[in-house]
Amino acid sequence: MSKTGLKGKIYDIQGFSVHDGPGVRTTVYLKGCPLRCPWCHSPESQSFHSQMSYASTRCTGVETCGECMKVCPAGALEQGAEESAAGGLIHKVRWHSESCAQCFACTQQCFAEALSVCGKDYTVEEVMQILRKDYDFLRSSGGGVTVSGGEALSQEEFTVELLRTVKADGIHTALDTTGFAPWKAVEHALPCTDLFLYDLKHMDSAEHERVTGVPNEQILENARRIAANGGKLQVRIPVIPGFNDSIENLNATASFCAELGEAVTVVQLLPFHHMGASKYERIQRPDPMPADVLPPDDGQMQKYLELMFDHGLQAMIH
């Protein structure tokens, strides 16, 4: 395939991204992920296909619109119950994802942008046009571009081409990855990735597979090889109560990081939160994370941080 025509499926490009690597960054989010982590706060990133998303709060009601229902070939849209809005009582549209044909005809009619397509194809050049506008700000802040997902390495060719182009412009590149990809893909990305934002979810492969759907051997092996080949890793540990927050597992994770040596720039502990709940609603998927799982409190997080320090690691709560 010619590289100029190479397309990637992207669900968001976010400017002034301040949590995804050093400095001020622009982050490109690629769609599709082989993992199914129940705490995922971007469930719309998991499917490799474009998909419907419905934000009912934006619907202006069938009284003044209702255009979507007219074009739906599958009868997946109907008038919902009466509810009050700023302008009086209205009936919003109800979307039935189970009968939806994912043809997106309704999204063309929805001017309120309540019904929308999540996931759009971009060429590398189209993305670059957007990214280049931000370069001055990225440079001056010691920031750069982050390619994230989903799992960006699942779209290997596109991701590598994007990173390569950005790096050729003299801009710092980061790849936010689950690490679950063939070594060949990681190796491909290595020369054009200044920093890997690298998730370590659990050290026990069976437990990893039970919860995320994939084992961890490949992930750990890729991390070792990145380190051995001169790559830099910013390790991220999502702290999920009841899953990976045992002292035993955290110790094992810390030891693993310590073994990687100077390749690890910092270990970030990311406390679990429920912020993604509304995103599950939008794609009409039940939130797999039980509501009674509470974010770890500050005291616990501090304890885990100390544990990382005990292993001689640079670490922070993020």
């Binding site: 002034f16 301040v18 400095g23 001020v24 001055d136 700000f137 001056s140 802040s141």
Partner: peptide, 18 residues
């Protein structure tokens, strides 16, 4: 939360300076 701490201060400075 976007600008907390010394790191946040540095980012804000960079944005303004640019």
């Amino acid at each position: 939360t976007a600008l907390s701490g010394e790191e946040g201060t540095a980012k804000l400075k960079a944005v303004m300076q640019t």
